[in-house]
Design a protein around this nucleic acid. Structure first.
Lengths: 177, 177
DNA sequence: AGAATCATGTAAGGGGTTACATGATTCG
DNA sequence: CGAATCATGTAACCCCTTACATGATTCT
C-alpha cells in the first residue's frame, strides 16, 4: 500500500458502472457526491493517472472531431478487486465516518451491491470494540483532562452508533441478501 | 495567513511559559499533550524554523560543554498576540474539536489563562448556529442519502454540545473571571 | 459577442512523513 | 559495554491546492 487508498478507491467506484474520462468523473463527483466529498479538476486528473500507474485502471484515447482527445479510463480486474475489498471494509477511525464510510454506503446503494446491511453490522462491531476499550481506560484514569478527552470520544462513538441504526433502515431492502 | 495555524499556534503555546529548544519542546509534547496530539521530532524542528521565519519567535544558540549547541526559541510579542488570538477563537468545524479545541482548552488550563468559561460559551454558540442551519436544511430536503448525512452531522454536533457542558464544569473555577 | 461548457493538463509551492546522519553523555 | 537519552538537523518522497495555459464549441 504505497498510497492513501481513500480517494483512489472512490474513483474506482465511479468507474465501476462504465469507463469515464476525467471531465466526466469530475462531473459525476460534483453532481452526485459533492454533498460529502469534493475533488478539484486537477486532482481528478492526477488521481486517474496514479490509478493507471498502479494498474487499477487502463486508459485509451478517443478522438472526437477536432476537439481535444478524451482519455477514457476503464477499471481493471485488479481495480475491481481493490474496490470490493475497500467498499466492504469498515473504517477504523471515527474521523473517517463522515467521508469514507459515507462514500462506501453511497457506492453500495448506487451500484446496488449486496451485503449493505451486514457491512453496517461490521462497522457497528468496530465502533463497539473501540467504545468498550475507551470506557475501560476512562475508568482506570484519574487525570481530569484525559477523562474529558475520553468523554468526547465516547460521545462521538455513541452518536455514530445510533446513526448507524438509521443507516440500517436505509439498507433495509438488502436485509435478506 | 500564509501557513496553517494549528500546529504553529500550539508550539507558541508551549513557548509561552519559558523559552525552549527543539528537544525540550518535543519532550513537553510527548509527556503532556501526546494524548490528543503528536508531532515527530523532525516536524518540531521544521515548525520551529517556520515560526522563526514568520517572526513569531526568535532563536539563539546556547553552548553547553562540548555537546551540540542548543537552539533556544523565545516567543516574540507578535507571537504572543497570535497565540492569544488563536487560543480564544472557537473552532469553525466539528472535525477540529478533537484536536484543536482540546489544545486550546489544554493551554487555557495549563497557562492559567482567564476566560475559559466564556470561551466555551463562544464555542457553544458556533455549534448551535451550525446545528440550526443543518436542521433547517434537513427539513427542506427530500433526498434520502442527504438526510442520512444531515443526521450524522446533527448527531455529532449534539454530542459535542453536551460534551461542552462537561468542559464548563472543568472550567468552573474560572467562572467569575 | 461574450460566457459557459467541454476537455486536458503542467507548474509552483506548501504541508507532512519516514528514513538517514551525527555524536556526546549517562544510566544500568 | 550496550542502550537510552540528549541534541540537531537534512534528504527524499508523497500528498494536495492554486494558479496558469490552451483551445473548441455551444448557449444566451
Amino acid at each position: 500500500m504505497s498510497f492513501k487508498l481513500e480517494p483512489d478507491c472512490a474513483l474506482l467506484g465511479i468507474l465501476m458502472n462504465k469507463p469515464k474520462h476525467g471531465y466526466e468523473v469530475e462531473a459525476y463527483l460534483s453532481s452526485e457526491m459533492d454533498q460529502f466529498w469534493h475533488l478539484s479538476m486537477s486532482q481528478v486528473y492526477a488521481l486517474l493517472k496514479r490509478i493507471e500507474k498502479t494498474g487499477l485502471a487502463v486508459s485509451s484515447e478517443q478522438k472526437h472531431g477536432n476537439r481535444p482527445n478524451k482519455r477514457v479510463f476503464s477499471i481493471t480486474e485488479t481495480g475491481k478487486e481493490k474496490f470490493f475489498e475497500w467498499v466492504y471494509s469498515p473504517v477504523k477511525h471515527v474521523r473517517d465516518l463522515r467521508v469514507e464510510l459515507l462514500a462506501k454506503l453511497f457506492f453500495i446503494k448506487e451500484l446496488k451491491l449486496a451485503g449493505g446491511f451486514s457491512f453496517i453490522e461490521k462497522q457497528v462491531d468496530v465502533l463497539e470494540d473501540k467504545l468498550s476499550l475507551i470506557e475501560r481506560s476512562k475508568g482506570r484514569n484519574q487525570d481530569e483532562f484525559q477523562v474529558l478527552l475520553y468523554s468526547y470520544k465516547i460521545g462521538q462513538i455513541r452518536s455514530a452508533l445510533s446513526w448507524l441504526k438509521e443507516c440500517e433502515a436505509y439498507f433495509y431492502s438488502d436485509r435478506l441478501k
